[in-house]
């Protein structure tokens, strides 16, 4: 039964003749109610008079909206340009000390670093340890590691070959 009601609803909605569903539509209360709806909905249409000077009102209103939007667009473009210029100026006039934090340093060549280390004059054993520690500290680049935006992976990478030296040791 529901299927026939659906067919009636569809035909009424599209304004098609009911055809074989007409018999059902005459007996089913819901379908009768639905068939009456288009006429009732037609009564909701009202011939409203928009009043004197409607066209002039609409033209003036539309022109005002276009002008306001154009001004807004110009203001937004200007604001974006000013912001971009400010950013550019800040970027170009940064202090050199900040640069060490922001730029990515070239990775140290371990071999070259070791060679350099070995070419120095022979220090005392205690002093040598200190030199090694100094070198490790230099490799770890503690200035970068202390910075908020430091990447742990970048700090660990140059220290990887020295990992076995501290294996099994407790801090």
């Amino acid at each position: 039964m529901k299927e026939v009601c659906d067919i009636v609803a569809e035909r009424v909605a599209l304004g098609e003749p009911l055809g074989d569903a007409a018999e059902h539509a005459a007996t089913c209360a819901r379908c009768r109610r639905l068939s009456a709806l288009p006429t009732e909905l037609g009564a909701t249409h009202s011939e409203t008079d928009p009043g004197i000077g409607f066209a002039a009102r609409m033209t003036a209103g539309a022109q005002k909206r276009i002008t306001v939007r154009r001004h807004r667009r110009v203001a937004l473009t200007l604001a974006a340009a000013v912001a971009a210029t400010t950013l550019g100026v800040v970027f170009l006039t940064r202090k050199p000390s900040d640069e060490t934090v922001a730029t990515t340093p070239a990775l140290h060549d371990d071999k070259a670093a070791t060679d350099t280390h070995e070419t120095k004059h022979e220090p005392a054993p205690d002093q040598k340890v200190d030199e090694d520690v100094k070198f490790l500290v230099q490799m770890a680049r503690t200035d970068r590691a202390a910075h908020r935006s430091a990447h742990w992976r970048e700090i660990e990478k140059p220290l990887a070959p020295y990992k076995h030296l501290v294996k099994g040791m407790t801090p």
Binding site: T48, M58, G61, A62
Partner: peptide, 30 residues
């Protein structure tokens, strides 16, 4: 615009809102 106002009024049932819809549509069309 008059036809548009008729549709807008039947849909919104408010004169001010119907006029606003027509004005906005005119501005967007232009």
């Amino acid at each position: 615009a008059r036809k548009g106002y008729g549709i807008a009024y039947d849909l919104l049932r408010n004169r001010a809102e119907a006029e606003e819809a027509v004005q906005e549509a005119l501005a967007r069309a232009c």
